[in-house]
Design a protein around this nucleic acid. Sequence first.
DNA 1: CTCACTATTTTGAACACTCAAATTGGAATA
DNA 2: TATTCCAATTTGAGTGTTCAAAATAGTGAG
Lengths: 234, 234
Amino acid sequence: MATRTVEDYIKRIYLEQQAGLELVPFGRLASAMDVVPGTVTTMVKALADSGLVGYEPRQGVRLTPAGEMLALHVLRRHRLIELFLVRVLRFDWSEVHDEAEELEHAVSERLIERIDELLGRPGYDPHGDPIPDATGRVAQRNLESLSSARSSGRGTIARIADQDPEFLRYATDRGLIPGAVLTVESVDPIGESIRLVVGDRSLTLGRTAAAKILVAWASPLGSDLDRVDAGTNG
Amino acid sequence: MATRTVEDYIKRIYLEQQAGLELVPFGRLASAMDVVPGTVTTMVKALADSGLVGYEPRQGVRLTPAGEMLALHVLRRHRLIELFLVRVLRFDWSEVHDEAEELEHAVSERLIERIDELLGRPGYDPHGDPIPDATGRVAQRNLESLSSARSSGRGTIARIADQDPEFLRYATDRGLIPGAVLTVESVDPIGESIRLVVGDRSLTLGRTAAAKILVAWASPLGSDLDRVDAGTNG
DNA sequence: CTCACTATTTTGAACACTCAAATTGGAATA
DNA sequence: TATTCCAATTTGAGTGTTCAAAATAGTGAG
């Protein structure tokens, strides 16, 4: 059985890879896990011994298929728990992350199955992150970051890529939640800001904030990317 | 912060004291915790250092007020989780113990408060065990074990003092669940068995099985011991 | 009073994880 | 080529929990 720490490392490596790194550098992993670099070296060797990761010394780590499978199971638990807390226990989506971080290591396979069933086998958590199914399959979506918008256009918010409660409350206050339709009014590449309209509100976002908002752009013909179901928020 | 292991030891010591021991012998604690005796000696010293227990060398351990407070908080979490699993997630009461054993160490104070509120601040878990409130207060009941019955009589089952799923399924099959009314037909002190009627069923129980069934006897005038609310089972 | 028995305690070691601090490797710079 | 610098690694140590096995204390029997 994978220990709690092992699950956390594997999950973190998966998320870093997901964020675009094929090989996660040790230093990055160290700061993400909030441990000293030497600890990562030690742990990565142990993870490699149990076949969950492969690594190039002084280069970085990468998950093996077994590691990826474990990561997907942990994320499945985490995201189902988040949605459960929001839907059933009426938590606000801005405050479920830390709770799920604990519970993901404590719930049994049986309990997760019950929750999945009760929620109707959802595909996305309250933040719009995809929930892997019991076999590890994840829905693939072609989303674009709001910061990559080059001109005006309409789209639906599909995902908020930040778990910080403060940012999430800020987003909620402005209607920036998965499922909301937004219109980009103008983009200022030099000033690094973007003006948009959400509902009846007009607002301006800086580049780094906009980078956290993932959007499915409305195509003229209405492709299936328009249909975003990201669960209930609030 | 008390570690998971510490919480388990403290909870166990509380339960053993509750079962009638003022001073819990190390050997008993060792087998209850499923560790070798030496481990208990080490742990008890550590617990004493943090002020949670007091102990007489070679005699046994006892909780301090601080230890009792901790035990009550852990039991509160455990029992609220059990009831939540039964009521909300439709688990059978025979299968919630192990799950709660894990979750009790992972839930936050905030989540427990939500659950408590959602369930309507219940006083008892599915097995009839009392749920301490947030300040550590526990309902006191004057229950008697079915094995102590000396003659025929009527009463209400208030609590089943065994968490073994097999025993609980056996009990469920025979209608021996908290809230059920039973009538003692006859007691055989030599054969160590007791005949009773529950609902429309008649059955015979041995002494040790009967010892696990705690009953509030019906008084002729109907005291408030008759009113047993032990939540929903099933 | 001594023996035997059982419960408890001590000792030394292990495992999983972590840190601080010294060292090394490799790449970029001068 | 020699120097500098940063990332990664090694080393030695500590924490919390556990075990196996040897030593000891107390209790009751003879």
